[in-house]
Each structure stands twice: as C-alpha cells, then as structure tokens.
Amino acid sequence: TELRLDINGREIKVDGADKETLKELLKLAEKNNDEKAIRIIRHLLER
C-alpha cells in the first residue's frame, strides 16, 4: 500500500521516503499542527 499525506495542500508520498525526508515532512506537519500527519511520520521514523 502507498501512504500519502496531504501536507500544506500538497499530497506527499511518505512510505519509502528516507529519514531526512521524513524529518523535513515532520517539521512541515508540526508547523501546520497536523496531528494525524505528525503521528504517522513519527511512527515511520521509529521503524
């Protein structure tokens, strides 16, 4: 399955993203107070 998050109005594919990319996405999600995106990205970073 493909995991996509809508961050800042942009749909971004997050599964398969490297750790650096995920960290950047996490910063974006935190800036937007997007709890769902934050939770998902943190979960991916823990893998």
Rank of each mutant, 00 (worst) to 15 (best):
R42A: 05
N32E: 13
R39L: 13
L45T: 01
R39C: 07
N8A: 11
K23F: 10
V14M: 04
T21K: 12
K31C: 05
E11K: 05
L3V: 15
I12H: 13
K23S: 09
I7S: 02
R42M: 10
A37N: 06
E30M: 14
E2C: 15
D18Q: 03
K27I: 10
K19A: 07
D34A: 09
L44I: 09
D34N: 06
I38V: 10
D15C: 05
V14C: 02
K23L: 11
K13Q: 11
L22V: 02
I7G: 02
G16N: 09
D34V: 04
R10T: 14
H43P: 04
T1F: 14
N33I: 05
A29G: 01
A37I: 06
K36I: 10
E2R: 05
L28N: 03
H43R: 14
K13A: 11
L26H: 01
E46M: 15
G16V: 15
N32L: 14
E35G: 07
I7M: 06
E35D: 09
D6F: 15
I38S: 07
D18G: 04
N33Y: 07
D18T: 06
R39W: 14
L3T: 12
K27F: 12
A29M: 04
E11C: 10
H43S: 10
L22N: 00
K27V: 09
H43K: 11
E46A: 14
I40R: 04
I7Y: 05
K23N: 07
L25H: 02
R4T: 15
L28I: 09
L45E: 00
L45I: 06
E30S: 09
L22S: 00
L28E: 08
I12T: 04
L44Q: 05
L26C: 02
K23C: 05
L44M: 09
L22E: 00
R47S: 11
K36V: 10
E46D: 10
A29N: 00
E20V: 10
E2M: 11
I40V: 09
I41E: 00
L28R: 04
D34R: 01
R10K: 14
G9C: 03
N33W: 08
L5R: 01
R42N: 05
R47L: 12
D34L: 06
G16I: 15
I12W: 15
R42D: 01
I40W: 08
T21C: 07
K19T: 12
E35Y: 13
I38M: 13
E35W: 14
D34W: 08
E2P: 05
R39A: 09
L22A: 00
E2T: 06
D34M: 04
K23T: 07
K31T: 08
N33L: 08
N32V: 14
K23G: 06
D34C: 04
L28T: 04
K31Y: 10
E24Q: 13
T21N: 07
N32G: 14
G16E: 12
D18C: 04
A17V: 06
R42G: 03
R42H: 05
E35P: 07
I7C: 06
K36Y: 12
E46K: 14
E11T: 11
I7L: 09
D6H: 15
R47K: 08
E46F: 15
A37D: 01
E30V: 13
D6E: 15
R42P: 00
E46G: 14
N32W: 15
K27G: 06
